[in-house]
Nucleic acid binder design. Structure first.
Length: 512
DNA sequence: TTCCGACAGTGGGGTCGCAAT
DNA sequence: ATTGCGACCCCACTATCGGAA
């Protein structure tokens, strides 16, 4: 199949807002794909490369290459070249990657270049990713969409399911069952603003501590243990403690879901930055493990001794987990019967925060494990802090925010009477707020370099955030975690904004 | 007819590893 | 030795579509 066909469909998909139309366009393309093209066409139209990321970013891609006049590239040729690109390493590799990218782009028409650019940066922006591709695949093969979705979650891969489905038809879906050793997409949580709201929604539920570490899925089959992240990357080699812990358990075959986190000598959780740095270390794992040891803490069991537990209610899955995993290796929890039992849930949250954790996850006791979904039956509750900060500058937005001032630079008052930048945010704004702030900030503008618009520090904005973290980038030595706009405070003057000093005093556990 | 679940988009900060300087 | 880039951890929030209620 020619690349131009994919580029055209991608453009058409982007041009329509109706999901049903997007699905139909993808289905038509998938039907036409030859068997050899399927493993390439499917991921491409889901906005991903089958090879994963290739070490090519904006630096290389921003160099313009004159487009070809005619469409001659086949998807096979593109795939072969990108596979080659992925193998390049060592001295001179940046130049070699740039050369290969230049070769590819030079053979592509303007429309094809745009499509390839989206694929290589992971930003196709066609309003359709995996979920719409799955729907299109079901339509193309006449399979039940829910069955296809489930197979994709269990296989952890759209491409594998697509190949089987297009080659063999809907019967092939049977093959994709939960298998020890093959990672499945993990279940995710929604947010709730309070424990009361969460318990009200869920009724009988477990309230579990939420650890601020790295999500892991641990598979053990006899002596073989594999550890995967939320995106199913294999990180077994970086976490010898987890492998050892899994081997100690009194079960030969299982899949467990949990979090990896580092505790200090006093048993308090280390900061997310410390845990993440440890888990990210690959070159000298033994040294990293000596300095920042990590522990697995589990909260769910997907499979035990060959039995698939996914469709069992959480209460039963947890009972199996408790039989397999001793207490210190399980998340602390309390079970409440419903809104009448709210006090117990609130008390548990307070204790969890006292122990230094992030918050809690409230889970319905009767819910199955919804692999790959952001199920409404898990609700996380974290305390939210707010500050009144001053807008120092704003950046012009992209995509649907083109022409709008979007990303705000936020400052707190510093001791010299000026403002210290604490970070940026683009979150929390409605379209109306975007329009309003674009107008208002341009009135305050003192400089516009086409990217950042600096403004007189006069506009006060209320910002919600999850906590402070160390920063080497910002002048106060700290930055806000997950900052988002709550509302503008036109009733406040910049002299009334919060100070760096007060912020640091509110978070004694973080020292710049 | 209205409501709500699921998705995609719009980007944030830190840290590590690697190659270039 | 330092710097810059890319990958990958963590993530919040809004708009929109289309099926459920």
């Amino acid at each position: 199949m020619l690349l131009t066909r994919l580029a055209q469909v991608s453009r058409q998909v982007a041009a329509t807002s109706a999901r049903s139309r997007k699905t139909a366009l993808l289905a038509e393309l998938f039907r036409d794909a030859e068997a050899d093209d399927v493993p390439i066409v499917i991921p491409y139209l889901a906005g991903r490369l089958p090879q994963g990321r290739l070490g090519v970013g904006w630096k290389v891609l921003s160099r313009p290459v004159p487009p070809a006049a005619d469409s001659t590239l086949t998807v096979q040729e593109v795939d072969a070249l990108l596979s080659e690109l992925g193998k390049v390493s060592g001295p001179g590799s940046q130049a070699e990657r740039a050369r290969l990218v230049g070769e590819l782009m030079g053979a592509a028409t303007e429309e094809e270049q745009r499509f390839l650019l989206g694929l290589l940066t992971g930003e196709v922006r066609q309003g359709a990713l995996d979920a719409v591709a799955v729907e299109g695949l079901a339509q193309a093969t006449g399979a039940d969409p829910a069955a296809v979705r489930r197979a994709v979650m269990l296989a952890g891969s759209l491409q594998t399911v697509a190949q089987a489905l297009l080659a063999e038809g809907p019967g092939a879906l049977e093959r994709f069952r939960l298998t020890v050793g093959r990672p499945v997409l993990p279940m995710l949580a929604h947010s709730a603003s309070s424990v009361a709201e969460a318990v009200e929604k869920l009724g009988a539920c477990a309230v579990e501590e939420k650890l601020d570490g790295i999500r892991v899925q641990v598979h053990r089959d006899g002596d073989t243990v594999r550890v995967h992240t939320r995106t199913l990357d294999d990180i077994t080699g970086r976490l010898p403690e987890v492998t050892a812990a899994a081997r100690e358990l009194r079960g030969e075959r299982f899949i467990l879901d949990g979090e990896v986190i580092s505790f200090d000598a006093a048993g308090r959780p280390r900061s997310f930055q410390d845990t993440a740095g440890r888990v990210g270390s690959r070159t000298d794992v033994a040294k990293a493990a000596g300095e920042v040891p990590v522990s697995p803490v589990f909260f769910d069991a997907l499979s035990v001794d060959g039995t698939d537990l996914l469709d069992l209610p959480f209460a039963e899955r947890h009972a199996r987990l408790a039989r397999l995993v001793p207490e210190p290796m399980r998340v602390r929890r309390t079970v409440v019967s419903g809104p009448g039992d709210l006090a117990a849930a609130e008390r548990f949250l307070a204790e969890t925060l006292d122990r230094g954790h992030e918050g809690v996850v409230v889970k319905a006791l009767d819910a199955p494990y919804s692999a790959g979904r952001r199920g409404a039956s898990w609700l996380k509750v974290k305390p939210v802090h707010t500050l009144d900060l001053v807008v120092l500058a704003a950046e012009w937005g992209h995509g649907r925010r083109t022409g709008k001032l979007s990303n705000l630079h936020l400052g707190a008052r510093d001791p010299d009477g000026g403002f210290a930048m604490l970070g940026k945010t683009f979150k929390g704004m409605t379209d109306a707020m975007l329009a309003w702030q674009t107008e208002r900030l341009q009135e305050l503008a003192v400089e516009d370099d086409g990217w950042v618009v600096r403004v007189r520090p006069e506009l006060v904005v209320e910002i919600a955030y999850d906590g402070l973290q160390r920063s080497s980038r910002y002048p106060a030595g700290v930055t806000l975690r997950f900052a988002r706009v709550v509302r503008y405070r036109e009733d406040k003057r910049p002299e009334e904004a919060d100070t760096v000093e007060a912020l640091l005093a509110a978070h004694p556990e973080v020292r710049p």
